[in-house]
């Protein structure tokens, strides 16, 4: 069943165009209207993109990734961050505001450096 969702906000660039119409079929985006090429590509998964659906972990960066459950992955991540002397939390720009708010709380807890893409 195809349905059209109107007035969708495009999560690609800082313009945040809010007039996008997204055509959804069986929980998949099959098309957009009004979006630019870049925005369209973000909605419709482009060919060849590999999506992760499970947490992955590896000890050595030369090894292959192994699948793990969320609890282990979060535990291990937290351990790395806590054990570090000066961790860096970088990125945040393609994330929504609540996550960024929590991120600053995390940085304060860890005594970390927090920075976003405005720095590059």
């Amino acid at each position: 069943m195809t349905k059209i969702i109107r007035n969708v906000v495009c999560p690609f660039c800082g313009c945040l165009c809010d007039d996008i119409e997204v055509i959804v079929k069986d929980n998949h985006v099959i098309g957009t209207r009004n979006a630019c090429r870049i925005g369209h590509a973000k909605f419709v998964h482009f060919e060849g993109a590999i999506r992760f659906t499970e947490p992955l972990i590896r000890e050595d960066k030369r090894d292959e990734f192994k699948k793990v459950d969320w609890d282990t992955a979060i535990e291990e991540s937290a351990r790395i961050l806590v054990e570090a002397y000066k961790p860096l939390l970088y990125g945040w720009s393609s994330s929504e505001t609540h996550a960024q708010f929590k991120g600053i709380e995390l940085a304060e807890l860890l005594g970390a450096v927090i920075d976003n893409t405005a720095t590059v």
Partner: peptide
């Protein structure tokens, strides 16, 4: 280059949220 990859949902497509325009 990662040691751990945590896969999130895409904000604005697969979960809601708030963003600031330019």
């Amino acid at each position: 280059l990662a040691n751990i990859i945590l896969p999130p949902a895409l904000a604005g497509i697969e979960c809601d949220g708030i963003a600031y325009r330019m």
